[in-house]
């Protein structure tokens, strides 16, 4: 019998290394020269990072299970962020949700205040997201970018229809952009090209290919991410950005994580099912190449952190 040769693929490319954070605490994501966790084949210099989603006002619509898990910390984004770091968050995703016109319609002043407070409370790097309405995003993210100068945060979402203002704010303050496209490999690459054409460096972009939760389009996200990662490793520099996935938000949006009444016994109890829903979504996307997973439930944060550690350790 012939000896078994280790089947190693040769990759010409490397995922861009993106630096985040200030002097007190830096974080690097990306840098892989092989597929997720295949240590026998190439380098994985930085473990995927676990981010915790914090909102700038208590999210009334969150599932009771989730709200109970954070308790009073949710009343104040800075204490929420602090608690998230205690649970093991590598970074914080700060959603400026209150700026949405249907919410409190807060403006740049409030955004500046919130960002400053969170930054002075935790050293962990920050990703700041606007409310998802172009004009408001531009308004509050520009203010946030200035407030966070020197701390190299990430700002999002840059989308094909609205990226120029946010990219300009990134360039002016040495921040990172989060580029979001709807589950399609060419749209993702195209937006990266547009952003780089404006002058932002490829190592200052995280890309969000749009997350589908388990049972709700996960397989689309999974395959688009696998294709982007393969393209990046094959040398396509505009596909080689670290990937960012809003796992918690998508998983907890679904009926499986919320419904408590009138559901089949085969679904099991709500807490078990909801937590597994978030965890399995995260796990699957980590295997497709996620470099940052944004989570919501503290127990999920701990379990995914521990799992990443295991995936990074050769037994």
């Amino acid at each position: 019998m012939p000896p078994v040769e280790t089947p190693v693929e040769k990759w010409a490319g490397k995922i861009h290394e993106v630096n985040l954070g200030g002097d007190a605490r830096r974080l690097v994501v990306g840098g892989e020269t092989t597929l997720p966790f295949l240590h026998f084949e190439g380098a994985i210099p930085h473990p995927p990072a676990v981010a915790v989603e914090v909102q700038d006002r208590p999210p009334a619509s969150w599932a009771p299970e989730l709200r109970a898990s954070w308790g009073e910390a949710m009343e104040d984004p800075a204490s929420w962020a602090k608690k998230a770091v205690e649970y093991g968050a590598d970074l914080i995703v700060l959603y400026l949700s209150s700026a949405h016109p249907d919410d409190q319609n807060t403006g740049p002043q409030e955004a500046k205040k919130t960002v400053t407070r969170v930054l002075s409370t935790v050293d962990a790097p920050l990703i700041i997201l606007g409310p998802g309405i172009a004009e408001k995003d531009n308004e509050v993210l520009v203010a946030a970018a200035e407030a966070a100068a020197g701390r190299r945060v990430a700002l999002g979402f840059c989308e094909q229809k609205n990226y120029r203002t946010i990219i300009a704010a990134c360039m002016a303050n040495n921040h990172v952009a989060v580029a979001k496209t709807p589950v399609e490999i060419n749209l993702a690459k195209q937006l990266n090209i547009l952003i780089c054409d404006m002058g932002l460096a490829p190592d200052s972009i995280l890309m969000d290919p749009t997350t589908g939760a388990l049972g709700y389009g996960l397989e689309y996200t999974y395959s688009v991410m696998e294709r982007l990662r393969l393209a990046g490793l094959q040398g396509d520099k505009m596909a080689a950005m670290p990937m960012f996935c809003t796992v918690g938000e998508e998983a907890w949006r679904q009926k499986e994580a919320r419904a408590t009444e009138g559901i089949p016994a085969a679904w099991g109890d709500i807490a078990t099912r909801a937590l597994r829903w978030e965890e399995l979504t995260a796990m699957t996307l980590l295997l497709a190449g996620a470099d940052v997973v944004v989570l919501r439930h503290p127990q999920v944060v701990q379990r995914i952190k521990a799992t990443i550690q295991k995936l990074m350790t050769k037994e």
Binding site: L214, G215, G268, T272, R273, L280
Partner: peptide, 27 residues
Amino acid sequence: AKYANIIVLDHFSPGHAYPLLTLRQNI
């Protein structure tokens, strides 16, 4: 996701089985 054709589980409960079977369906 990554290449098992048969999985033997040591624990069975609906709250675990449902998400796992859904993942299998997705993949």
